Each structure stands twice: as structure tokens, then as C-alpha cells.
Simulated scan of single mutants.
Amino acid sequence: MNKKVEEIQNWYRNEREVFNYSIMDIGEKLKNLAEKGLIWVLKDLKDTTESERIVINYYLDKYRAVQIYDNLQHLFPIPPSNSQCAITPSKSSKKDTPLQNKQHTLKVRDSKQFFGYKKAKKLEEQIIELCKNFPSYEVDHIVGQIMRSAESIKKRIQIGEQIYIREKFNQYSIAIGSAKETSAWLQVSLGQKYITQNQFEELDTMVDHVIGILTRNLSNIKEKEGKGLDLPSPYTPNVKNFGAYDNALLLVEKIYEVTRKREFWKEKNLVSDMRKQATSCVANIAEAHQLYRKKKFRFFNDSLKALGGLESSLETSVSKGIISKESLKGISELRISIRNVLSANMGNISNEKAG
């Protein structure tokens, strides 16, 4: 590999570590490389995330005409890292790169031998089997969502088995969020009597076990290999103790109840929208309970957007004379209560140092 190419790739890896693998933060770095004709260097980088690949391909397409492929050794030097640990081609610096520092890297293991992966795989398999008995009209909604979130747990654990500590925290955070979302879909399924109480308890216990395993792993890494890195706390709050979550589940119950009325029988699209918006609200609240504040804020905001969409659909049902405004009073009160709690929490997050 061209030494300059390797230098740029190593510099980018280091920048990624500094910014906690946040695509929002490293996006400017990618744009800068694209403008200078060097984004192509990252095209075949093996350890990039899906989000990174999307951004890299976007900038490569946008700035394709200015990409420089020859005489790289004569180009300007790579700018220094914000952490003052940028990798340079000098022999002395290679010994000191964070990527080769044992305190900042992990030994890669076979994810399929990891107990947490095995648990996540078994959970996904049982959910797939369980979903075969769901009503056909839920195939594109609850079934699709719960299978997606369950698959995400396993997938993120597998991606997380790599050398980079911050990326492991990032992938495990997504896995934990997906696990909590899976639990939310299980609770929605129980509420609609698609599954039994015993089935719910068995699968929800498996979800808790996976979260516990991931949390313990991250805690050990933070205490040992992660010393000197500003890593987030691996301990996440229990979403079931969050008042807005219970109210969101109750909101789902009420939306399903009202949309089963005879007046809605000819309004399939409206019914589908209302149910998807209500369940999206509870799913996003659940997924928000993970490691990073920025992600928590984003999922809370997505939950607010779902509430806004639900409000619009409810207004449409009133305008069409399908249901009266008075009969929706309980739903409106729940929706406002959830919105107020989420808004207050988002305000607190904004006042804290971003995670």
C-alpha cells in the first residue's frame, strides 16, 4: 500500500477514536478529505461502519472530479489530530500510535463463541418462530419491527468484536438500544394478546440477560483496556422505570382500541398510520435508553415526531367525522403528558455535556 494512503487512513482512524465514532462529528473530516481530493483513500477501508460508508460514498460521488490519485507524496501534510496524537510517517511516531497502544486496543475474539452473541442469536430465532403466529395484518408492522430489532442485537454484537475500543462501545450501545426496543415490541405484542404472558416473560428475560452481558463486558473494558479514554458509563437506566414509557404503552393500547371500532373499518390507511405512530413513540423511547446522550436525544426527538404525526392523524379522523373530539380526550391527555416528559428530558440533555 502507498505510504501516503496508509498515513491518511491511520490519521482518519485516530480522528474517529477522538470523536467517539460519531458520524455527526467526523462528517466534517470526511468532507475536508473529499474537497482536497483524498476521500477515495477511505473507499476500501475495511473497518468502517455502515454510516461511514454512506457518507464516504456520498462525498466521493460529489467530489469525484477533484480526486487526486497520483503523486500523493507531494501533497500537503495531514492536519494534526485534535487529540494531538495524529499519526505521521516518521519511525518514532509509529511506536506511539494509539492503534498500537495496548491500553487503547482490544484483542479480537470469535463473536460466535461469545455467550452474549449466542444468547442474542437464540433470542432472534425464538422471536422469528413466535412471529409465525401473528395476524397477517401485522406482518408489515409489529412483526417486521420486532424481527428487525432482534436481528440488530446480534448484528451489532458481531460488528463490535474488533480492535477499536470506542467502536465496540458504539456498537454495543446500539445493541443495548435494540434490545430495549425489542422488549418494547414484546410488550406491545402482549398488550394485543399476540403472545402469552409466559412467552413474554421468557423472551423479556432473555433480553435482560443480553443487556447484562454486554454491560459487564463494557464495564470490564472501561476499567482495564479503556483507561485514559473518556468512555461513557456502560450502565443504562431501566426504561421500565421511566414514566413516559408506561404512558406510551397505554397510548398504544388506546389507539388499537379506538381503531378497532366499526367507524374505522373502511379507513385502513388511517388505521395503519395511527398504530404505527403510536408504537413508534414507545419503541423510540425504549431505544433511547442507551450509552450516549446524543443518541438518547435523537430517539426522544423521533418519539416526539411520532406523537406529532399521531396528533395529525387523530385530527383527520375527527375532520372526517369518524370519531368525536370528546371521545379522544383521554388519548390527548396521554399524548400531552408523554410530550411534556420527553421535552423536559431533552432540555436536561441539552444542558449536559454531550456524550
Rank of each mutant, 00 (worst) to 15 (best):
140 D>H: 09
70 D>W: 00
62 K>P: 02
130 L>V: 01
131 C>D: 06
155 K>S: 07
89 P>R: 06
55 V>Q: 10
43 K>P: 00
60 L>C: 10
153 I>D: 01
126 Q>E: 14
95 K>S: 03
103 Q>M: 14
79 P>N: 02
135 P>H: 08
94 K>I: 09
102 K>M: 11
141 H>Y: 07
104 H>T: 14
50 E>T: 13
113 Q>K: 15
63 Y>T: 11
89 P>C: 00
90 S>E: 13
140 D>N: 14
88 T>Y: 09
128 I>Q: 13
80 P>E: 08
141 H>C: 05
42 L>H: 00
31 K>M: 05
35 E>P: 06
156 R>C: 04
70 D>Q: 08
149 S>Q: 12
56 I>M: 09
96 D>T: 12
60 L>S: 12
31 K>Q: 12
112 K>Y: 02
76 F>L: 15
101 N>A: 11
146 I>T: 01
59 Y>C: 09
67 Q>T: 12
81 S>V: 05
120 A>N: 07
28 E>L: 06
136 S>N: 09
68 I>D: 03
112 K>L: 10
145 Q>C: 08
54 I>L: 10
143 V>G: 03
65 A>F: 00
65 A>W: 01
38 L>A: 06
95 K>Q: 05
150 A>V: 06
122 K>Y: 05
144 G>H: 10
110 D>E: 15
79 P>G: 05
94 K>Q: 14
43 K>F: 03
28 E>H: 08
101 N>P: 02
66 V>A: 10
19 F>L: 12
99 L>R: 08
66 V>M: 07
98 P>D: 09
98 P>Q: 09
94 K>V: 02
104 H>N: 08
70 D>R: 11
45 L>I: 01
103 Q>V: 05
85 C>H: 09
33 L>K: 01
102 K>G: 13
62 K>Y: 04
125 E>M: 10
49 T>E: 12
24 M>D: 14
52 E>D: 15
79 P>R: 05
33 L>I: 02
39 I>T: 01
51 S>N: 12
112 K>C: 07
112 K>I: 08
60 L>K: 08
153 I>P: 01
134 F>Y: 11
47 D>E: 10
146 I>R: 03
21 Y>L: 02
20 N>H: 13
48 T>M: 10
90 S>D: 15
80 P>M: 07
26 I>H: 00
49 T>Q: 11
58 Y>R: 05
55 V>Y: 10
143 V>I: 14
124 E>R: 12
146 I>Q: 03
70 D>F: 06
33 L>S: 04
20 N>L: 13
156 R>K: 07
114 F>G: 04
98 P>A: 12
84 Q>T: 13
138 E>M: 05
69 Y>E: 00
117 Y>N: 10
33 L>V: 04
153 I>Q: 00
83 S>F: 06
88 T>C: 06
141 H>E: 11
113 Q>V: 13
32 N>V: 01
108 V>E: 11
108 V>N: 05
97 T>F: 08
28 E>W: 07
146 I>F: 04
134 F>V: 06
93 S>A: 12
26 I>S: 01
132 K>F: 10
54 I>D: 08
128 I>V: 14
92 S>P: 02
28 E>F: 07
50 E>V: 12
28 E>C: 05
127 I>T: 06
153 I>W: 03
140 D>V: 04
53 R>W: 02
69 Y>S: 00
53 R>N: 14
114 F>E: 15
25 D>Y: 07
27 G>N: 15
87 I>E: 09
52 E>I: 03
127 I>H: 05
